[in-house]
């Protein structure tokens, strides 16, 4: 099976599953509507239901296209070893999750410094000294602008507070 048809097939199946999940589980459970609405068209449920049905139709279309499809390059298939690439993606996901979780405790400036350093070294920077200098300076300059010029209450964290 050509790569593009596989991609369309995957997308089509994912769309159908998402549509089924929305129609049978998420919309009835997570969208509330007042009980006294006589006309379904005006209900808060109507629009999400329409969108989930349309998603299913697009999913069917993608599956139909994949059956009669033309060969194209798959976006995920690339030459070269894949393991290091997936490893770096996983590491970046961890850095982003840690950044989000550390923001309230460490504060935006210190968390950003750590995130900068971790990301630069993940990208195998050829300028380690410049990376450390930028990791310190950029969050500080942005803190200066947003806290003192734009008047944003930048989170300071529980440990070291900046003026």
């Amino acid at each position: 099976m050509p790569d593009s048809t596989a991609l369309n097939l995957r997308l089509g199946i994912a769309s159908l599953l998402a549509s089924g999940f929305l129609f049978f589980y998420a919309i009835p459970r997570f969208v509330s509507a007042p009980s006294n609405i006589n006309n379904i068209v005006l209900s808060p449920l109507f629009w999400p239901y329409i969108l989930s049905v349309l998603t299913a139709l697009v999913g069917l279309g993608l599956i139909a296209v994949s059956i009669t499809g033309e060969p194209e390059e798959d976006g995920f298939a690339e030459p070269g070893p894949m393991l290091p690439k997936w490893g770096r993606l996983a590491a970046l996901a961890l850095i982003m999750a840690a950044t989000f979780l550390l923001l309230p405790a460490l504060g935006m400036v210190w968390t950003s410094m750590l995130a900068f350093l971790a990301t630069a070294f993940l990208f195998r920077t050829r300028h380690p000294v410049a990376a450390v200098i930028c990791a310190v300076l950029i969050p500080l300059v942005l803190y200066g602008f947003f806290a003192h010029v734009a008047g944003v209450a930048v989170p300071q964290g529980n440990f070291v507070r900046l003026p």
Partner: peptide
């Protein structure tokens, strides 16, 4: 160096998005 530019973009995004609604 793009490998320093992209971490800077990440930090800029964090500050910028936070600044919308604190």
């Amino acid at each position: 160096p793009k490998r320093l530019l992209m971490p800077a973009v990440l930090v800029l995004c964090i500050y910028g998005v936070f600044a919308v609604n604190n």
